[in-house]
Nucleic acid binder design. Sequence first.
DNA 1: ACACGTAAGTCTTGAAATAAGACTGAGTCA
DNA 2: TGACTCAGTCTTATTTCAAGACTTACGTGT
Lengths: 156, 156
Amino acid sequence: MRWHDLRQEDCSLARALAVVGDRWTLLVLREAFLRVRRFDDFQSRLGIARRVLTERLAHLVENGVLTKVAYQEAPPRYEYRLTKRGLGLYPVLLGLVHWGDEHFAGKKGPPLLHRHVGCGHDFRGVLTCSECGEAVDPRAVEPHLGPGARRKTGSG
Amino acid sequence: MRWHDLRQEDCSLARALAVVGDRWTLLVLREAFLRVRRFDDFQSRLGIARRVLTERLAHLVENGVLTKVAYQEAPPRYEYRLTKRGLGLYPVLLGLVHWGDEHFAGKKGPPLLHRHVGCGHDFRGVLTCSECGEAVDPRAVEPHLGPGARRKTGSG
DNA sequence: ACACGTAAGTCTTGAAATAAGACTGAGTCA
DNA sequence: TGACTCAGTCTTATTTCAAGACTTACGTGT
């Protein structure tokens, strides 16, 4: 299977990964969530090859995750900002960060904490059910085919 | 930056991605969450190159996400099961699926729905604060250095 | 015995993606 | 003028991946 073909798959995970599942993309988005917006800042903070960064940013813009905004006209300069769609990835990023905190942090603890402005405390993200509000355990979820399924063995 | 070096980064997201951030890994885990356990089943469902699958499974086992369990002795045959650490990725997977549902599903709707056994409804995952229980908005989060930080520009 | 099937890999080869860093072009500042 | 900024482009060597044939070890049917 080619990477590009993922978008055609009958699976929302595959389609999501076609957009953000690449080696560098989530790191680019990490920086974006930390308010990084400019090409050279992404490049120097990540140490990513410039060619690859160019391509990733363009891909994210194409897919509506980032938007390219001119911040000066001569010479033309652009910055990259998260769109609403991009902000929608926050739970995913935070989930990965907390998973990393839990399983791969050193003895001293996590390198970065997250304070919830609403209540003032450092927190972990908890996955809860949109319908009943309870925390969701993986084993308490039954996947079943939805209206957009195209085949019997649908998987995501 | 080499891919392998991510594990050394002072960032939980990078460390998480060193384990699951590869092109195929999250798709392998999707199948694992759908109860797929055997090499040939992963291979045929995903269409992944066998060599790559071998390597990914070994990597996930090394990092404690999957465990290799013998299910027969002659000839020796193994299956791959999610560990507790692996189950901890569920919110990430589900977050990606729901993001994909929201932004890339066709007109008919998502190909797969998730029923919460606790309340009986199809649901979306909602990110809530472990401290106050409220839903968390990305802009209501302030990252700040934690005890495990090693540098001033820590980022994750 | 012998062919066939099953399952978990290994090996080979050509194609594609990546890393590293030099280079370009338009404009600013001293 | 010459140095500097910034967003890219280009080049080359290395690494990774896709596709699928092949291997090993055993069981089954004839």
